[in-house]
Amino acid sequence: MPANSLRIKGSKNGIVIEFEEDIGQAVTLLEDKLKNSPAFFSGSEAIIVLPETFIVEEQFLARLTQVLANSQVKLRELRRVNSTTIIETEIIKTPEKIGVEQGIFWVEKRLRSGDRITADGDLVIVGDVNPGAEVVATGNILVWGNLLGVAHAGSDGNEKSRIRALRLQATQLRIGSHISRAPDDLSTPQGPEVARVGPNGIVIEAWEKLVTEPLPFWRRLFIHGREVKL
């Protein structure tokens, strides 16, 4: 095993771990090093630096976070050599804890096609979620912008979760095990809306008129209540 597939340095922000080309081997090597000197690494924060051309995939991320978590090392940031941009998936790995039990994940970013963010707790996106992007949370989802992609709230089965957006025009909405898609006649919503699970599937209503029972028929006609079913 080449010794240079991994370089570990200390810095004032935490431990800097630099990976060379062979990433698979580097992660294994890192795992060994962490295991061999737990006292040194435990409780510290790590900055992982990847080769310039390495493509980050979910599998790799999952393995890396697992290896670090096993030795009580917190992943502070993940970035590329010679670059200051932090790779996006990592922003949400350190939730800002609000309250005692639930974490709120705060993401200020425009999510483009192919981007995916998952959160264990409530998820707030400040920015648009473009078509082809996906946001998933075990709790509620709030998009302060246009929600045009796919949103899945209550991903571990919580059907009381809600999805809110300033402009709710998602390709698909999922809450718990319910799925609804955009209606074929794409009507533009008149204002901020909220989606929740009603008696017959997912219901979309005007945000400020959020009520527990469905609106009467005539009000639905004139004011809000775009009812969307699969």
Binding site: I55, R112, S113, N130
Partner: peptide
Amino acid sequence: VRDADRVVGLLDKKGN
């Protein structure tokens, strides 16, 4: 447009 959106995201992340 959809593909272009993906490419903009990739350029941002991978192309610096």
